[in-house]
Amino acid sequence: MHSCKDPETQRTLMEIIQETTNRLNQLQKQESSNEVQIRQIEGQINAEQMKGQLLELRRSHARTEALTQGEAEALRVSAFLSHLGEEMAIADKLLIFNALRKQDAIEALSQGNAQLYFTPAEVDLSIETRS
C-alpha cells in the first residue's frame, strides 16, 4: 500500500484535485455563461412583448382616429344632403354631391404633379358632324 507521503501518490492526488478543480471551474463558468444568455433572452422577450403592445396601441389609435374621421365625414355629408331640401330626390342630391366631390378631387390633383386622364364617358364627350 502506498502512503500519502509517497511522491507518486501525492502527484496523482494533486492531479486528481487539479482536474476536479478545473472541472468545477468550467462548470461554474458554463453556468455563469448560461445565466447571462438566459438574461439576454429574457430581455429580448420583454422587448418583443413591449413592441407588440406598442403596435397594438398604435392600431387601436389608428382605428379610433379612422372611426372619428368617418363619423365626422358622415355628419358633413348628412348636413349637406339635408340642406338641399326635402323637395329634391335623394338621387339628385347624390348626383350634386358626387359632382362636387369630383371637383374637389380634380382640384387636389391639380395642386401636385399627378397626371389625370379622362375617358370619353367621364367627360361626357359628344362629337357632332356638320355637313
Rank of each mutant, 00 (worst) to 15 (best):
Q37E: 12
Q44N: 11
G112L: 04
V77N: 00
P120K: 14
E48W: 11
N34E: 03
T12I: 15
N34R: 04
T21Y: 03
A47Y: 07
N22Y: 00
H61S: 11
P7V: 01
N22T: 11
Q26E: 08
V36K: 04
T68S: 12
A74F: 10
I96D: 05
Q115S: 12
R101K: 11
D92Q: 13
L13R: 02
N25T: 02
M88L: 14
T119K: 05
M14E: 15
R58L: 13
G52N: 05
Q111N: 11
T129Q: 14
D124S: 04
L109H: 13
K102W: 10
Q69A: 06
E73G: 03
L94V: 03
G85H: 06
L75W: 04
L67G: 05
K93V: 02
Q53I: 10
R76G: 07
L81P: 00
N22F: 01
I127D: 06
K102I: 04
V123C: 06
M14C: 02
R58Q: 15
Q69T: 11
T21K: 12
I127W: 09
L84Q: 02
A105D: 07
A66I: 08
S82W: 01
H2W: 04
S82I: 06
I38E: 10
Q30R: 05
K102C: 10
N113C: 09
H2E: 09
T68V: 11
L116T: 14
S110M: 08
Q103R: 13
E86T: 15
A99F: 10
Q18Y: 00
L27H: 04
T21F: 04
N113V: 06
T64K: 14
V123E: 14
L125V: 03
T129A: 08
L55I: 15
T20S: 10
R101N: 12
V77A: 01
F97A: 04
K5N: 12
I41Q: 06
F97T: 01
L55P: 01
R130C: 08
S33K: 07
L100F: 12
I16K: 04
A66S: 15
S32I: 03
I96P: 09
T20G: 02
I17G: 04
D6A: 00
S126G: 03
A74E: 10
Q18F: 02
G43D: 14
I90H: 13
V36C: 03
A66H: 13
E73C: 07
N98D: 09
E71K: 11
Q111V: 02
Q30I: 00
N113E: 12
A47N: 09
N22L: 03
Q103K: 12
G112C: 06
E86V: 05
Q44R: 13
L81G: 00
Q49W: 06
T119H: 12
S131I: 10
E128G: 06
Q44K: 11
I16D: 06
S131K: 09
N34F: 08
R58I: 11
E42L: 08
K51E: 07
